[in-house]
Amino acid sequence: MLAIYLGKKFYLIDNIHQLNSLSGDACLFSVPTFLLQSSNNHNIPPNNLRTIFLGGGTLTSQGIKKIKQQFSQAKLFEFYGSSETSFISWQDITNGKFQFSAGQLFPNTQVSIGLQQEIIVTSPYLFSGYLAQTPPKNWVTDDLGFLKKNHLFLLGRKADLIDHGGNKVAPLEIETAASDLCQKCVAFGVEDQVYGQKIALLMIKPITKKQLQKKLAQRLEKFKCPNIYLVTNEIPLTSNLKISRSQLAQAYRNGEYDEI
């Protein structure tokens, strides 16, 4: 819609190399995982990307650095929103970003935080409601976060919270703490009769288990430290290039991952 509004050409691509067939400068709207997967291919030729807009998933500092190595000439922007709320916040991440940051709110967008830290949005960009229902005045998202000086910070999705011994643990906090201890990682909960859920951390090329336990004990509260350390060569994604923690938990139950 933005391309049409600005009188530009719009292309749907499924391969990053297709950008090089475009004439003139281009900007790209993408989910982070698409570019991170593309950057694993070190034979990407020079391209004419000048701006990259990223949504549908948050980027870590390592992810930003990896994308910049391949697309050094492009400015990077990250935006946050949902199908019901459209755009909520945005930020320039060309030079990195603050931990958990989702950026500043879009104009005329108001965010309040619920009792369980759920993000509640009021804005002119809200959808008009479901069929045969009154248009909503605000929308309670499935995401958790907090506000600080008109900047929004995300703690993850409510459905992804790990219920460990009565404590609600955000996977994103664990993943951030472990981001420099492995090539890539994802945290999720697995069912446990005693604790409700145990915390599992799935990693690619991690340091030793002893080093992991020592480092994470320094960075996280005791009840947030992983109980299970798993290793894999690749973290699977859904068909829309996102991580499903429920699918990872099922794969663990099926014995698909090796414990360190």
Rank of each mutant, 00 (worst) to 15 (best):
F71Q: 02
S61D: 10
Q91K: 07
D92C: 10
F77D: 08
N95E: 15
Q73K: 12
D92L: 08
G81I: 06
Q99F: 04
S72L: 02
K97L: 08
S61P: 02
I67C: 05
I67S: 04
S89E: 03
Q91H: 07
I64A: 00
S86Q: 12
G81W: 06
G96M: 11
K68Q: 12
E78N: 07
F98R: 11
Q70K: 15
S82Q: 08
I64F: 02
K66M: 09
F71L: 03
T94V: 11
A74D: 03
I88R: 00
K75S: 15
T85N: 08
S86C: 13
S83K: 12
T94E: 09
A74F: 04
S82G: 11
S72A: 10
G81H: 07
T85V: 13
Q91A: 03
K75C: 12
G63D: 14
S61C: 03
K97D: 09
Q91M: 14
G96I: 13
S82M: 13
T94F: 10
T85W: 05
I67L: 07
Q62V: 07
I67E: 04
Q99L: 06
W90I: 14
D92N: 15
E84L: 08
K97H: 15
Q69N: 11
K68I: 02
Q91T: 07
E84K: 12
K75T: 11
G63V: 02
D92R: 04
Q99M: 00
G96H: 13
S83D: 13
S82P: 05
A74W: 02
Y80L: 07
I67G: 02
K65V: 07
G81M: 08
L76H: 00
S82I: 06
F87W: 11
G81E: 05
G81C: 10
T94C: 09
I88G: 01
S61Q: 12
G63L: 01
A74K: 00
K65F: 11
Q99R: 01
S86T: 13
F87H: 11
E78T: 03
Q91D: 10
K75V: 07
S72R: 05
I88M: 02
S89P: 04
L76T: 00
K75H: 15
F79M: 14
G81T: 08
F98G: 13
F77Y: 15
S72T: 04
T85K: 04
Y80E: 07
Q91C: 07
